[in-house]
Amino acid sequence: MTQNDHQPRTDEAAPPTAGRPGLLDVRDLRVEFRTRDGIAQAVNGVDLAVTAGQTLAVLGESGSGKSVTAQAVMGILDSPPGFVTGGEILFQGRDLLKLGKEERRKVRGAKMAMIFQDALSSLNPVLSVGAQLGEMYTVHEGLSRKAARGKAVELMQRVGIPAAEARVSDYPHQFSGGMRQRIMIAMALALEPDLIIADEPTTALDVTVQAQVMDLLAELQREFTMGLILITHDLGVVADVADTIAVMYAGRIVETSPVHQLYKAPAHPYTRGLLDSIPRVDLKGQQLYAIKGLPPNLTAIPPGCPFNPRCPLARDICRTDLPPLYEVAPGRASACHFWKETLDGAR
């Protein structure tokens, strides 16, 4: 799964063939933004792996590089200012970074698709939802407009939009937030892609609708055995649907773990901080825990462990040596020099 940055890989021998394992294999991905204020290192050596039918949650606060990683994988990074400066993105055995523009475009939508946070702004306001759903078929499969429209109605029914055939000519603003997000999901699913990246798909929705949308997403994922990357900052959303979690901080993965193990005993102080800052009913009335300080400025990431200025466990070594990803347990890794202490519950 996730590899140590600083040591040679051991499972390199496995051939990168399209099979059930290794749907997406991101290795040492690096992305930087060249801005007027300097170079912002948004992603600094990220390793991710998703297999078919698996859900990987990428967790992190704003600016941790989770969305940028997703955009780099999709190939929709705004460039300039964003540039992929290193690593490889193996998708079904092919390195996407080595593909031509046109080949890459054909992968988008057909093989991997993306669901965005705000469905209202992610749907074109001047086109009816039927036209936008149908576009998936006219662009990628060359269907006629009429046939595409039939497919659009079918899709809308599949994602649970009532009276789909009557509403197919409606415009995005005529739908409620939850219905719009269902339409976004329908668009992403249209061509039955092998991988879906959902970038905070429920953040813009209210809580009851959030649960419905997540259920729908999980259900469709099972049905099509797709790989799903769920990008979120909401630990509550993650627990129910994800198989594994990758926690990102300052453009790095700081902890990766099967979901239940992570909730039970985090192996990185940052993850612990995140879990402790969830409001809990049994601690009602007490002060809510918050991680002190702010995430680092990406144009000047502190030396050593990027989390050290905010870390309650920080010692001298943390200010000088960047911790590699230590294997904590099979399938679990933590980029903390003191992962053992953290795991044992030290603060």
Binding site: M74, G109, A113, L127, V139
Partner: peptide, 19 residues
């Protein structure tokens, strides 16, 4: 966002610009 979304779903430059 919908231009970004169209790109993420495989629209080419011409289609993004015209449609």
């Amino acid at each position: 966002d919908y231009v970004q979304a169209a790109r993420a779903l495989g629209a080419g430059n011409r289609r993004m610009l015209l449609r």
